[in-house]
Simulated assay, not measured.
Amino acid sequence: MSVSASPLAVSSIVSTLRAAGCVFAEDEAELIVSTAADHAELASMVERRAAGLPLEHVLGWAEFSGLRIAVDPGVFVPRRRTEFLVRQAAALAGPGAVVVDLCCGSGALGTALAATLDRIELHSADVEPAAVRCARRNIGDGGRVYEGDLFEPLPGSLRGRVGILLANVPYVPTQDVELLPPEARIHEPRVALDGGGDGLDVLRRVTAEAPRWLAPGGHLLVETSERQAARAEETVARSGLVPRVVTSAELFATVIIATRPEPSGN
């Protein structure tokens, strides 16, 4: 149950948040008030937000694809632009699709895809223990979550069976990480942001192994930036997958969809 706050109190919260640099102070105040269980929690939430903690970590959840996804402190916050990747995956997934979500973070992508489709076989993995715990809460009985580096913790029985491989890999070049907003730079795990020298290091590792895990005709979907798209597409093509780039002007999203070719003669 949310706490009851007077208009004067809400106005004070808005002023506090605005002074802390929150651009959408009114909207954030409304969310905080509607989430807090009592006045003590309300005061704590306002204090933490004013101190620079991401709003989603303060609330304990992020809105993603129409769902409330639990997001614990220290866990990567799912971005609205990544909803475009989920929509692309939903359009490609067949009934009962085997789905793997690498670098799953809070498990938002797999959770949203499972909510969109009737039934999928969902396997998610992340190297961060805090993310794995969070993903298990979000996914619940809807799939399995593994702790480990990329494909390493996945059961070998998935090789050659994966129809949809989601890999929301980090793609910020190392030298640009310090240019990110403090909310991300300070409060989200570096491993979820830093993509190496040119931002494509983790993508290279994923595409090197992806063909062995994808079923014939299966699809790998990765998010990248507009300026990295051409190099990312070349990276994917070198693995033997057939890439194409799709974009959303509305969400400022760029996604590479790479398909494992069907055997010749099929």
Rank of each mutant, 00 (worst) to 15 (best):
E226A: 15
V177Q: 01
L214E: 00
T174N: 06
E209P: 01
G197Q: 09
I186V: 15
T174P: 05
D176Q: 14
E226M: 11
P181L: 10
T207E: 05
R205G: 02
G195Q: 08
A215Y: 06
L203Y: 03
G218A: 13
P216E: 11
D198T: 07
V222M: 03
H187L: 06
H219Y: 10
G217W: 10
D176K: 09
T224K: 02
G199H: 03
N168G: 15
G195T: 10
E223N: 09
R185M: 04
L214F: 08
E183H: 07
D194S: 06
E226H: 15
P211Y: 09
L214M: 10
P216A: 10
V202N: 00
E209M: 08
E188C: 07
L200I: 09
V222R: 00
V222K: 01
A192H: 05
A192G: 07
R212I: 00
L180G: 07
T207K: 00
R227P: 02
G196S: 10
R227Q: 12
R212E: 11
E226Q: 14
H187Y: 15
Q228G: 05
G199I: 03
E188R: 02
S225H: 07
R205N: 02
P182F: 13
L193R: 02
L180A: 11
P170R: 00
G218E: 04
V206Q: 01
P189M: 13
L180R: 08
A192E: 07
D201N: 08
R185H: 10
L203H: 01
L179Q: 14
E183G: 09
N168Q: 10
E223T: 09
A215H: 05
G196P: 09
L220A: 05
A208S: 13
E188K: 00
D201W: 02
P173F: 10
T224N: 02
S225V: 06
R204I: 07
D201K: 01
P170H: 04
W213P: 00
R204F: 06
D201M: 06
Q175Y: 12
P181V: 12
R227W: 15
R204C: 06
D198E: 15
P181A: 14
V191N: 01
P182G: 10
E178T: 12
E178F: 08
T224L: 13
V177C: 07
I186E: 15
G218D: 03
L179P: 00
T207M: 02
L180Q: 09
L193P: 02
R190F: 14
G196R: 01
D194G: 04
N168F: 03
Q175M: 12
P170L: 04
H219M: 05
L179D: 15
T174M: 07
Q175H: 14
V191Q: 11
P173C: 07
L221I: 13
P211V: 11
L200P: 03
